[in-house]
Design a binder for these strands. Structure first.
Length: 591
RNA sequence: GGACCGGUAGCUCAGCUGGAUAGAGCAGCUGCCUUCUAAGCAGCAGGUCAUUGGUUCGAAUCCAAUCCGGUUCACCA
């Protein structure tokens, strides 16, 4: 149990003892004490003043006295300023904590809780390569999965590949028209980029044809609808649905090229999945649920035969769930897939990592599932994240302003190499070790950059100024880890201690911060927010660096101090490692 | 038009279940490498927390209105 939790309980108990008022520990507000005041944690008293009919000062004095006399082992001092009760936690508490955790490689993790959670992320289209937006999605998905694991959940990572539809037909048509039998191998192009190039070619040709038609006097809208290449694409989609052999063959071939490319990227960035769904397999799911919905009168049919749900009572709109021609729409597939997942894995919670442009969609999805009474319904959670924008605004593939994922990763790794060479600290590394280090640092910088901000918020990426390696960054934290490891390598093994104290201010600050780590991991899971961990780890590294500059660890004043500082260092390294690990970021032993 | 999200330092972001004088990083300016890795540390400077009103002991945080930006409301996926 964290100290903060203890303080809440102790405070509630003290209030009960003194005033016979029942109070939930959760109602007690505890903050870190501001540096300008004496103490470690502060109980804010205003909330109780009215109910207990005491002046803030009197209440503080009585509470402080009571808390300290009932828990002399935990608190050594208190003071009251205005309505704030500042408590000083005994050094013995911190020392005991460090001593108990310093060799715990699982520091921060909780025991398995037997609950299963699904995380669906990445979910690409197969007509073009991954870009910066996908990276945010992949890093978030991977990270939230790791955070949930660290909190004792069993996690199933899934991906739904959007492998069918008009978009992939566009690439296919363009390849038929302009490909001349080229393949990724014959052109030495990564498969997903290869197919993406034909998607671009499609759009170029389409635009050209539209202009041509307009020049012949057709109206804009008509030209856009009747361009031959578009008609051919629509026909191809029909052929695909009819299972026409040569179309299926081409479709399989081009998708296989894309998958080869995706696999390489996924491997590079560390994305993996326990189960991959393909839309070509799942797009017919959910049809039977339409019948169920009609029978339950959750859905209704219009005269033309189309099926709808009326969500206006919930502040939303009417939503189509089956077309008049009997085919299902996107949301119906999603309902079906939610059911499929439920049957297959029976998870308590199902998290969808999907951009915030689909907020409405997921609100509707959950609501429909609930109205249908599906067992999967309440577990649906949309982990919505904001778009990654450029200083000039949104990325647009048609305007060529998309930041390609592979390119960006390469660039980051190159910068890592360049900076590492400039500093010249690892000249004895083998080529293999160097390559690994560059990957670790480059990807670390990139992942940290994308994970350090609240997922909900959109963020800006400026390609002109490369991602930093100083300050609030991945490399800064990795560097701190490497520094600690350097000391630990040289020092004798870290051992248990019998200490005592007193702790110096920076030793104590570091201890307090370390003690928060498990709570931070829990919060991150609860809020579905990896940025909480990123911010925490950064602050931890910062405190350590101040401590490191101020105090000698290997040549501490006394053997006892040295033992304490070595423990602190080792535990800091472990917290950094475990924290970065749930962000999908490795930390080097040297850099 | 309805719904939802956002507006905090020059830039990128924390802080938002109301709590003490609003914090980081970058950029700018000062210092610090014969002692454990300077990808570091210490310091300076930088703010009408979009605006206005309200709620109260107390508001960046809650409520209302307004302004600005974004997303969404397809028989598209």
């Amino acid at each position: 149990m964290s100290v903060v939790t203890k303080i809440k309980e102790v405070t509630a108990a003290a209030i009960h003892q003194l005033y016979q008022v029942e109070l939930a520990a959760g109602d007690v507000l505890v903050n870190a004490t501001k540096p300008e005041f004496e103490g470690d944690y502060t109980v804010v008293l205003f909330a109780f003043v009215k109910q207990l009919k005491k002046s803030p000062d009197a209440l503080g004095q009585e509470l402080g006295q009571q808390i300290i006399s009932t828990h002399p082992d935990l608190f050594t001092a208190y003071n009251v300023i205005k309505g704030f009760l500042n408590l000083t936690v005994a050094d013995a508490y911190w020392l005991q904590f460090i001593n108990g955790q310093y060799s715990n490689t699982e520091f921060g993790h909780t025991k398995p809780n037997g609950e299963k959670v699904m995380v669906e992320y990445s979910s690409p289209n197969t007509n073009k390569p991954l870009h910066l937006g996908h990276l945010r999605n992949n890093f978030l998905g991977r990270s939230i999965a790791e955070i949930l694991k660290a909190n004792g959940n069993e996690v199933v990572k899934t991906c739904i590949v959007n492998d069918r539809g008009i978009h992939i037909c566009k690439s296919m048509i363009a390849w038929q028209l302009f490909g001349n039998g080229a393949t990724p191998a014959s052109t030495h192009t990564k498969g997903d980029h290869f197919v993406g190039d034909y998607y671009v070619k499609f759009n170029d040709e389409y635009k050209r044809q539209v202009e041509e038609l307009k020049a012949k006097g057709k109206l804009d809208e008509e030209a856009e609808k009747t361009a031959p290449i578009l008609l051919a694409t629509q026909q191809m989609l029909l052929d695909w649905e009819a299972g026409k052999p040569e179309v299926m063959e081409l479709w399989r071939t081009m998708n296989s090229w894309v998958y080869e490319g995706f696999d390489a990227t996924y491997q590079r960035i560390g994305s993996d999945f326990d189960k991959t769904y393909y839309e070509s397999d799942t797009y017919l799911l959910g049809k039977d649920l339409v019948e169920t919905g009609l029978a339950k009168k959750v859905f209704y049919q219009k005269p033309d035969g189309s099926v709808w749900i009326d969500l206006t009572a919930d502040g939303l709109d009417e939503k189509l769930v089956r077309r008049k021609d009997g085919t299902s729409v996107y949301i119906t597939q999603d309902i079906g897939l939610a059911e499929q997942k439920q049957k297959e894995f029976n998870a308590k919670q199902s998290i969808y990592v999907v951009g915030d442009e689909q907020n409405y969609h997921f609100k509707v999805l959950k609501l429909i599932c609930q109205k249908l009474g599906l067992p999967s319904a309440d577990g649906i959670y949309h982990l919505s994240y904001g778009m990654v924008e450029l200083p000039t605004g949104k990325m647009k593939s048609r305007e060529g302003t998309v930041v390609d994922a592979d390119d960006l990763v390469e660039e980051m790794v190159n910068i890592a190499r360049q900076k590492t060479e400039e500093l010249g600290k690892v000249k004895d590394f083998t080529e293999e070790e160097l390559q690994e280090l560059y990957d670790t640092i480059g990807l670390g910088a990139l992942k940290f950059f994308l994970l350090r901000v609240d997922p909900k918020k959109k963020m800006v990426f400026n390609p002109e100024e490369s991602i930093d390696f100083h300050g609030f960054t991945g490399p800064f934290i990795q560097y701190t880890h490497a520094r600690i490891k350097s000391i630990l390598r040289k020092a004798e093994p870290v051992t248990g201690i019998q200490e005592q104290g007193p702790l110096l201010p920076l030793e104590k600050e570091l201890s307090i911060h370390l003690e928060m780590f498990p709570t931070v991991l829990q919060d991150a899971a609860q809020e579905h927010d990896p940025s909480k961990v990123a911010i925490y780890v950064f602050n931890l590294a910062k405190i350590f660096n101040s401590f490191y500059t101020e105090h000698s660890i290997a040549n501490a004043e006394t053997p006892e101090k040295k033992a304490v500082r070595l423990q602190l260092s080792q535990l800091t390294a472990q917290a950094i490692k475990n924290g970065m690990s749930v962000l999908g970021i490795r930390v080097p032993e040297r850099m």
